[in-house]
Write a protein that binds this DNA or RNA. Structure first.
Lengths: 103, 103
DNA sequence: CTGTAGTGCAACCTTTGGGTTGCACATGCT
DNA sequence: AGCATGTGCAACCCAAAGGTTGCACTACAG
């Protein structure tokens, strides 16, 4: 089980979300990503490390370049957490409505 | 439209998620929340400010206390973003699968 | 073998963020 | 009026985060 905290933390940064959005289209290397984003290659590498910690990205070394592939799976847990909170809230509203209706 | 960035940033902190989880059950004041969490009242106030910026919480002053109510709506945009990324990725996988199938 | 593109690691800087304490102001109860 | 409760605002601390530069190392091309 991947850590939900790591997932949310990873998704909190705009640059990281940009990287994710980019990787959603096609896997790429760190240098490639750095060329398409307004940050240095090392900065991208750090972000990729964070994404890797969250399990959002898979690493595969091909020759001299490292290819990063997106793995959306951990986002499911984040969505589940949100859905849970929303459901709990809606349920509370439901109880209030029932009480108001006098049933 | 609430800022997706603010939502993710708000959700990134564990204490803030704890506050949200608590508010999902029942609205409460800052002091109340501080009493149930291992942080000071001022710290909670800051977190509530962040949640308010993200639109995740509604403020309503009742007498001398301020009541904070959860609003799960902005989380929808966050989920939409994730769903979008996932869909884009799945679509890519779909294309690859179709190509592999030779259709 | 030499040059070059792609990485990894480390030091360093600066800003942001979470937390605390202290104090002033408002509201409610007696 | 007097006191307790609940807030709001500000200053201050310290650790973490995002970013950069510099350098050493690996791998492929000529």
């Amino acid at each position: 089980m991947t850590d939900v905290n790591a997932v949310f933390a990873a998704l909190a940064d705009p640059t990281r979300r940009a990287v994710i959005g980019r990787l959603a289209r096609e896997p790429a290397s760190a240098s490639r990503l750095a060329g398409e984003l307004p940050v240095s290659r090392q900065a991208v590498a750090k972000h990729l490390a964070a994404l890797d910690r969250a399990g959002l990205v898979a690493t595969r070394r091909a020759g001299r370049e490292t290819r990063y592939t997106l793995d959306p799976a951990p986002m499911g847990e984040a969505m589940a957490w949100m859905a849970g909170v929303g459901a709990q809230w809606d349920e509370r509203l439901g109880r209030l409505a029932r009480r108001a209706a006098g049933s």
